[in-house]
Amino acid sequence: MLNALDTAEYLDHVTVRDARKNFHGNILVYVHWEDHLSFCAAIAFPLPPTLSFGALVSDVIAPAYAAHPDAARIDWSKVEWQIDGVRMVPDLSLSLEANGLGHKSLLRFKTPGLHGWKGSAN
């Protein structure tokens, strides 16, 4: 029986429940659209790391946010991206991994000129 009062024995039994190996080949990616808080939080997606960034935008991100009135007006070529706090310009033809997205990375984007319902960040 595990003796949880023995620190070494306890640490030996700690399992990282959300390790990458538990996601069946996918990585977990979080996406957040700035100034559009009617989507209450960043969105979580399990994605193949080999997926191209272009496919992420067209097949994953765009449909997820389609319900917002601003969504149809996004000019994806003008979008500003940030991965884990660092500004970057993605190469749409390269994979998520090649663009610097890792397991549980946070991808935030801004849409210049679009700041939510009547500019209220909603």
Binding site: C40, A41, A42, I43, A44, A64, A67
Partner: peptide, 18 residues
Amino acid sequence: FYNNSLPQLCQVCQIPMV
């Protein structure tokens, strides 16, 4: 309006990061 995706959660309180 529905949000059909799953939200990012806080590792401690487990509330969506709203």
